[in-house]
Structures are given as structure tokens and as C-alpha cells.
């Protein structure tokens, strides 16, 4: 991963680039988005080192408690990814996940957390590029956010 792809990236050895390393928790459904992340690795597409990936059976498995607990424990951002509508291995887990995300978007500011720190996306198992772009762009936006550049 080059500085060009993530300009604000904190450099772990020199301590330059950002104020500190960010911590971003990413919940990936095993059937689609985890598979996309895996393919991104095979295709040698860079993904940010700041991600802590948690593989779950379904995006519908990601209880909002897990998202809020991640923030409570200091995560700078949280992403949840699931299969596209119609592709859910369990029929509608991804729809419930979307429903929760829509409510969370409005709830987070009430809890004092900027909604820009949370993202929900649909990523198919073939979409390694999309995974690369979404994660890179999210981490970059969090660094800009952190330095007040946004």
C-alpha cells in the first residue's frame, strides 16, 4: 500500500502521516463480503492496515450492540458489509442489517458519535475492487475527519 492511495495514513515505524493509527472494525459476512476481501488479497489489491476484520455468518448477525461496543472500546470507525439484496444466504439478514444501519445513522449523533464513522455496504463475493475502494476511502475519510480536514 502506497502513501498515494491513503495519503493520511499513519506510518507505524516513523510515526508520521497521521496523529496516531486509527482503529477501524469491519464486520464481514462470510458468504459475500469476506469472500470479496479474500479475493482482494489474492489479486494483491491494497487494503488499509487499520482494519480489524471480524468474520460473521451474516450481516444480520451484527447486533447493534457489537457496533456500539466497538465505539465504546475506542474504534474510530465501524463498517458492516453484507450480500446484495436478493443474495443473502439466509434470505433477509442483509435487509435487517440495512434497517438497523438506517436507524443507527440517525441514532449515533444522538449518542455523540458522528454518523460518518459508521458505514453499511453491500459487497458481492466477486467485488474485490469494490471492497478495496470502500475500505480505502473510508479509512482516508476518517483520517481527514480526525485532522479536521474534511
Amino acid at each position: 500500500m502506497t502513501e498515494a492511495t491513503v495519503p493520511h495514513r499513519y506510518h507505524p515505524t516513523t510515526g508520521t502521516g497521521g496523529s496516531r493509527p486509527l482503529r477501524v472494525v469491519v464486520f464481514l459476512c462470510t458468504w459475500c463480503s469476506f469472500s470479496a476481501a479474500d479475493k482482494a488479497g489474492t489479486k494483491r489489491l491494497p487494503v488499509p492496515a487499520e482494519l480489524s476484520v471480524i468474520r460473521v455468518a451474516c450481516s444480520g448477525r451484527v447486533e447493534p450492540t457489537l457496533v456500539l461496543e466497538a465505539f465504546r472500546q475506542g474504534a474510530d470507525g465501524v463498517m458492516v458489509m453484507g450480500c446484495h439484496p436478493g443474495d443473502c444466504h439466509y434470505q433477509s439478514g442483509n435487509l435487517q442489517a440495512q434497517c438497523r444501519a438506517v436507524l443507527l445513522d440517525r441514532l449515533l449523533p444522538q449518542l455523540g458519535i458522528d454518523a460518518a464513522r459508521f458505514r453499511f455496504h453491500y459487497v458481492a463475493s466477486t467485488e474485490a475492487d469494490r471492497y478495496h475502494h470502500l475500505t480505502t476511502e473510508f479509512v482516508q475519510s476518517l483520517y481527514e475527519f480526525d485532522t479536521g480536514a474534511s
Binding site: 456500539l68 439484496p85 436507524l103
Partner: peptide
């Protein structure tokens, strides 16, 4: 987390009519 428990419960109770296929934004 208290608010999360009720958020899940409420989310499970609502189901809009979702056309097929539907993209991210539509849903």
C-alpha cells in the same frame, strides 16, 4: 447496550416491499 437491544427488536419487525432486483440505494 440498551438502545441496541431495542433497535434490533424494532428492525426485525418492519419489512417494506422490496422489489427484486434492488440496489443498495433503493433498499
Amino acid at each position: 447496550v440498551p438502545v441496541a437491544a431495542s433497535l434490533s427488536a424494532l428492525s426485525a419487525a418492519v419489512l417494506p416491499d422490496i422489489p427484486h432486483p434492488a440496489d443498495d440505494r433503493t433498499v
